[in-house]
Amino acid sequence: MDASNCMLSVIMPCFNHGIYLQDALDSIKKERVNFSFEVIIVDDGSTDAYTLTKLDELKAEGYTVIHQQNGGPAVARNTAIKNAKGKYILPLDADNMLTPEYINTGIAILEKGEYQVVYCTPVFFGDTGADARTFQSIPFDITELLAANYIDNCAMFLKEVWVKNNGYDTNIPYWGHEDWEFWINAYANGFKFYFITEKLFHYRIVAASVATQFKDEKKKADNQNYIVKKHHQLYLDEYLKLNYIRKKYTTDIKRFLFAPFIFSGYLLNVIKSPFKKAEERFAKKNTTG
């Protein structure tokens, strides 16, 4: 493949998930993808014999396979992206699957230049049950994102996002929240997000995976504290904005005789809502400050 014409790099960290690798690769149908792409597989210190044999087979078939000591998802993704030739990046875990439509739709959106990150809704399959770690993807809202992650790692983004973010943060105390911090960092660096409502990739629920540690409340709390401290100014700004909005609405409700007219004005866009006022007020503050 001509590196100068490579539009997309699909990066795949793999740790002992060789049994799923072929499914992931087969899900990317070259004849149905409208853009040039490459696949980079990073073996994150696998010890499973089947996985190691499968990786050797894929290397013989011409796939780019990079071996490294086990360092976790963030390190593996950074390694892959450092070697990526694509204008855009799409991380794909070795046990998940893409659809060609995701690539075609996502790149078409990114190429317009208004957005730098595109994500969609996943289809969950595998060990789905009452305790399965599923999540609800929603349209981008920074307030919601600061509270909890709803954007899966399998999101397409301009490689420049990774550059400006200084890569995935490898200093987070425990593996599993590096993608959440990456999206917060991307927002803080001025990048814009686009949400595709269609279900365009398949997320496999695996009983024994990095995600299972999300049930460990101490690890989860340690990671959250790390992220809040790192992005404390963004969290503070958002808190101040929400507090401003709460006070404005509380004032409106106390003026109960006029409240129906005021809220009707908000709905009809005749009166500027507290949300709009907050956006303008804090945007101005951030610009001048």
Rank of each mutant, 00 (worst) to 15 (best):
L8Q: 03
S9F: 11
I19G: 10
L21H: 00
Q22S: 15
D23E: 14
D26Y: 13
D26A: 11
S27V: 00
K29T: 01
K30M: 10
K30V: 06
E31H: 15
R32N: 13
N34R: 05
E38G: 04
I41W: 04
I41N: 03
S46G: 13
D48C: 07
D48A: 01
K54S: 09
L55G: 00
D56C: 01
E57F: 11
A60N: 14
E61S: 14
E61T: 10
E61R: 08
G62A: 12
Q69K: 01
G71T: 13
G72C: 05
P73E: 08
I81M: 00
K82S: 02
K85Q: 07
Y88R: 01
L90D: 06
A94T: 12
A94G: 04
E101I: 06
I103M: 03
G106V: 12
G106K: 00
G106S: 14
I107S: 07
A108L: 12
I109Q: 04
E111I: 01
K112H: 14
G113F: 05
Y115S: 00
Y115F: 14
V123H: 10
G126R: 05
D127V: 00
G129H: 12
A132S: 11
T134N: 04
T134W: 06
P139Q: 01
D141T: 03
I142F: 11
E144K: 14
L146E: 02
L146G: 07
A147M: 12
A148N: 15
I151C: 11
N153V: 13
C154S: 10
L158R: 05
E160A: 04
E160T: 02
V161N: 09
W162L: 02
G167P: 07
Y168A: 10
T170G: 06
N171K: 11
I172T: 08
I172P: 02
Y174C: 04
Y174D: 06
E178W: 05
W180F: 02
W180N: 06
F182Q: 01
N185P: 03
N189K: 10
F191S: 05
F191K: 03
K192W: 07
F193R: 02
Y194D: 02
F195N: 00
I196G: 03
T197G: 10
F201T: 04
F201Q: 06
F201K: 11
H202G: 03
A207W: 14
A211R: 01
T212P: 07
Q213A: 09
Q213N: 08
F214D: 04
K215Q: 09
E217A: 12
D222R: 11
D222K: 08
N223R: 09
N223T: 07
Q224D: 05
N225A: 15
V228F: 08
K229G: 07
H232Y: 02
E238H: 12
L240F: 09
L240W: 03
N243G: 06
Y244A: 05
I245G: 03
K247M: 04
T250N: 13
D252P: 03
D252V: 15
I253M: 10
R255Q: 11
F258N: 15
A259N: 04
A259P: 03
P260D: 08
N269A: 06
I271W: 11
K272A: 12
K272W: 04
F275T: 11
K277Y: 11
E279A: 10
E280A: 15
K284E: 12
G289K: 14
